[in-house]
Simulated assay, not measured.
Amino acid sequence: MNNLIHRLLLVTFFLSGCAALIYQIVWQRYLFTGLGVDIDSVTLIVSSFMLGIGIGGALGGWVADNIPDQRLKIYAAAEFFLALIGFSSPWLFSVIQSLSGSGWSYAGVSLVSVLAVLVPTTIMGMTLPLLTVYFNDALQNIGASTGALYFFNTLGAAFGAWLTVEWLFVSWGLDQSAQLAASINLCCCILILSASKIHHLLGGTVFCPKD
């Protein structure tokens, strides 16, 4: 049982990284329509992603420390809300794309674009500290906890980047790619809730992967 929780959570973090990179590439393409393709727009979009991840990391650390009994449920909720945003993103970004044609200034479109990216990336950023603290309760080794999670998340991100460029854009297009990423988030939510249920059945004890 303990090993099952461990594996389920690592799988979710791999899948979460995959979905995140699909979103980043897809949302960049959406926003290029409204902002144009130049160094300014690329810098703005990538910086917004990094800012959101940073804010989410700080927020997730605070939540993990102050609401320890709900870490897995909050992680599941984060993936659920990412799924909702992902499913609605084709509509959301089509609205942003239309702003330029409606007379909005470049600064105005940029601000709306940043806000549209900041919300989901902040949610993404929350997930690492939530899981890191949860893992560290068992491993008592923050380096091992962070390293394992970063490895699976980065591996998933690399796979998501390859999948998007080599297959999704060729066969599916932007809207379907975003919906696939949202479906991945929804699968993560289900897996996390399953892990949380097992954790509860074990009496709330923290798993130990070495068992």
Rank of each mutant, 00 (worst) to 15 (best):
I53L: 14
I53W: 04
I53D: 10
G54I: 13
I55S: 11
I55Q: 07
I55V: 10
G56N: 10
G56R: 15
G56H: 07
G57L: 14
G57I: 12
G57T: 08
A58I: 10
A58Y: 15
A58T: 11
L59M: 12
L59Q: 04
L59K: 05
L59P: 08
G60R: 11
G60S: 07
G60P: 06
G60C: 07
G60H: 11
G61T: 13
G61S: 12
W62N: 03
W62K: 15
V63A: 13
V63I: 15
A64T: 04
A64D: 05
A64P: 00
D65I: 00
D65W: 00
D65R: 01
N66C: 04
N66S: 06
P68Y: 04
D69G: 00
D69L: 06
D69M: 08
D69H: 07
D69F: 02
Q70L: 04
Q70F: 09
Q70M: 04
R71P: 02
R71W: 03
R71V: 02
L72K: 07
K73E: 06
K73R: 15
K73S: 12
I74E: 00
I74M: 09
Y75A: 10
Y75W: 01
A76F: 06
A76M: 03
A76L: 12
A76N: 04
A76H: 03
A77E: 02
A78L: 01
A78S: 13
E79W: 00
E79M: 04
E79Y: 05
F80N: 02
F80E: 02
F80S: 08
F81L: 08
F81I: 12
F81K: 01
L82M: 13
L82S: 10
L82R: 05
L82C: 08
L84E: 02
I85T: 09
I85A: 15
I85S: 04
G86D: 14
G86M: 03
S88T: 15
S88N: 07
S88I: 08
S88A: 13
S88Y: 09
S89V: 01
S89A: 10
W91A: 11
W91I: 14
W91R: 11
L92E: 10
L92K: 09
L92N: 05
L92P: 03
F93N: 10
F93R: 05
F93S: 04
S94Y: 12
V95M: 09
V95W: 15
V95F: 14
I96T: 04
I96G: 11
I96Q: 05
